[in-house]
Every structure is written in structure tokens, then in C-alpha cells.
């Protein structure tokens, strides 16, 4: 079976907007993603190197302001939901398949290497910028936060700035 067409982007945006609005109405906060991944990183450190977790100031501060396991956080439950929701959508639209997506001019191996590299940068940047495209840019726009909107401009501006240098990753080009 062929994968179904994507939803009309404006309709998808409207739907997403209402999900975000409901979140703000119910919980007073917006959506997020990188924070949930941070919970995973914290959980990893706590379980792989418990002594280190107890002794380093950054983790101590975290433990002070958060009760229980790092996985017992709002954003972690939320990203579990994200995975479930995306999976349901994938099933409905026939898009679930174990595969790799990349630009036409690079190999699978380099795609994976660059994906890890990009992840490292994004993960790092999300911590420095206090939130990623979801928590800072999108949720920030909904509440008209100045910080959220300058982060958004920096993310998209940054991506445009670097786009030229990494065009080989994505476009069909003879080297």
C-alpha cells in the first residue's frame, strides 16, 4: 500500500495550534521536546555513574529542584506521548517502515554520522538556549515571549546561514 498524502499544512498547523492552546489552558505551560530528551540523559548519568551524579554540582542542583527519578518529569511523559501519537499517525497513513532518509548525494554511513553530529549540536544548543523549536520557539510564540521568538529567529536564521555550506548533504549536486 502506498503511504497516504500528508495533511494540508495549514490544517495540520491549526490542529497543532489547538493542541498547544489546550496544553497552555490546562497546564499553564507549553509543549517541549528537548527537555524530555534531557530526562533520558540525566537518567543515563544517574544509573551509569551514580557517584558522579551525586557529586557534580549541576546534577546536585537538578536533584534539589526535582523530586524522584529524572524520568518522572512532565516533558518525559509528554515525549512518550509524542512517540505514541506519531506512531499512530504513521500506522494510519501507512508510513511506518524501518528505513533511512537522506539527500541524494551522500551515503547511508555519512547520513548517520551527520545525523549524530547534528543531534549533538541541537542537544547542546537546546540546553544553552533553554529550549528547542518546540519548547522555546513554538510555545514561546504562543505566549509572545521575547526570549522564545529571538531563539526562533536564531534557530531558523542559523540554519539558513549554514544551509549553503551543507548543501551537499541534501541537494542533488555533482561534487
Amino acid at each position: 500500500m502506498e503511504p497516504k498524502k500528508y495533511m494540508n499544512p495549514y490544517l495540520a498547523g491549526l490542529f497543532l495550534g489547538f493542541v498547544l492552546l489546550a496544553t497552555i489552558y490546562i497546564t499553564g505551560r507549553g509543549l517541549g521536546a528537548s527537555g524530555g530528551i534531557k530526562s533520558i540523559a540525566l537518567y543515563g548519568v544517574e544509573n551509569v555513574a551514580p557517584e558522579h551524579f551525586e557529586n557534580v554540582e549541576y546534577y546536585q542542583d537538578y536533584t534539589k529542584s526535582h523530586e524522584g527519578s529524572p524520568l518522572n518529569s512532565w516533558l518525559f511523559y509528554e515525549i512518550v506521548g509524542v512517540v505514541i501519537g506519531a506512531f499512530i499517525s504513521g500506522i494510519i497513513s501507512n508510513r511506518v517502515a524501518l528505513k533511512l532518509e537522506k539527500g541524494p548525494s551522500i551515503t547511508n554511513k555519512s547520513r548517520l554520522i551527520f545525523a549524530v553530529l547534528g543531534g549533538i549540536l541541537f542537544g547542546f544548543g537546546s540546553q544553552l538556549g533553554r529550549g528547542c523549536t518546540s519548547g522555546s520557539a513554538l510555545s514561546g510564540m504562543a505566549v509572545m515571549s521575547f526570549g522564545g521568538i529571538i531563539t526562533m529567529i536564531a534557530i531558523f536564521g542559523g540554519a539558513y546561514m549554514f544551509a549553503y555550506f551543507f548543501r551537499k548533504l541534501w541537494l542533488n549536486q555533482e561534487a
Binding site: 528537548s34 512517540v83 506519531a86 541541537f122 528547542c132 551543507f166 541534501w170
Partner: peptide
Amino acid sequence: VGGIIMGAGFIIGGFCPGTSLCAAAVG
């Protein structure tokens, strides 16, 4: 600064954290 680093991560990695979770969910 964090935003620009994220921008670089976006273009190099092809995802942002939220979208990477969705893409992983569909394999």
C-alpha cells in the same frame, strides 16, 4: 548563541528534537 547552534544542528542533522522523535516512531 544557543539558537544559532541549534540552527547548525538542524541543517546538519536534518531534524529538531521533536521531529526526530516522530521520525523515530515511524522507523
